[in-house]
Simulated scan of single mutants.
Amino acid sequence: MSEISVLDYGAGNVSSVIRMIERAGGRARRIYSPAEVAEATKLIIPGVGAFDYGMSQLELRGLLPALTTAALENAVPVLGICLGMQLMCRTSQEGKMPGLGWIDAHVLRFSFTNGGSLRVPHMGWNTIQVPRENQLLATDSGEQRFYFVHSYYVACNDPADPIAITDYGGKFVAAFQRKNLFGVQFHPEKSHRFGMELLSNFLEFPHA
């Protein structure tokens, strides 16, 4: 298995992600700089907190050009987790700054029109459905459960991008894949064996 670089940009629980990668049998390296991003052969962008804060931290640290080169030009496998997934999209209702724009998707706030008692943020364990073959999640492994904490969700414009769907007051995208780019709304580092399996699959995904 290859090494995964985990980007520390001041907006993610990097240590927990590294520990889960190691439990999955991989090697993880905490990185901070554009030069380290340029050296990465696999990359995770974790994230918790607000959209504009995450984007501003990437910009402040000079990471935006290096990230886009790695993801779009060098086809480095990239996995965005929670806020990291949302930053890969075009825009978010949570903020005013543009996202990385790698995925044709927008981030929307949960809004329940049926007058139900569902709470925001969506917090806790939820099952997913996997509608198509992909390199991250098995389609035939029975029930898969992951841990979610979020008030906003990704809406993909291309129906080919979602690889997992979750229902919370309506169906939304729990994970997407476009070529070498992956995003998951849940936290694999908090999802026990399901998260470990997902990270193991990401470790095995080939770098072009």
Results as ranks from 00 to 15, higher is better:
residue 88 M to R: 07
residue 89 C to G: 03
residue 90 R to T: 14
residue 90 R to N: 11
residue 90 R to K: 15
residue 90 R to G: 01
residue 90 R to S: 04
residue 92 S to D: 02
residue 93 Q to N: 10
residue 93 Q to C: 08
residue 94 E to A: 06
residue 95 G to Q: 05
residue 95 G to V: 07
residue 96 K to G: 05
residue 96 K to L: 14
residue 96 K to H: 13
residue 96 K to A: 15
residue 96 K to Y: 10
residue 97 M to E: 15
residue 98 P to G: 06
residue 99 G to P: 07
residue 99 G to F: 01
residue 99 G to S: 02
residue 103 I to G: 03
residue 103 I to R: 02
residue 103 I to F: 04
residue 103 I to V: 13
residue 104 D to Q: 10
residue 104 D to W: 09
residue 106 H to G: 10
residue 106 H to I: 15
residue 107 V to L: 00
residue 108 L to G: 00
residue 108 L to F: 15
residue 108 L to Q: 13
residue 110 F to Y: 07
residue 110 F to T: 11
residue 111 S to F: 13
residue 114 N to G: 04
residue 115 G to C: 11
residue 117 S to M: 13
residue 119 R to H: 09
residue 119 R to D: 12
residue 120 V to T: 11
residue 120 V to W: 07
residue 120 V to L: 02
residue 122 H to P: 02
residue 123 M to S: 08
residue 126 N to D: 09
residue 126 N to P: 09
residue 126 N to W: 06
residue 128 I to C: 00
residue 128 I to W: 01
residue 129 Q to T: 14
residue 129 Q to D: 09
residue 129 Q to I: 11
residue 130 V to S: 06
residue 131 P to H: 00
residue 131 P to R: 04
residue 132 R to Q: 15
residue 133 E to M: 09
residue 134 N to V: 07
residue 134 N to I: 04
residue 135 Q to Y: 04
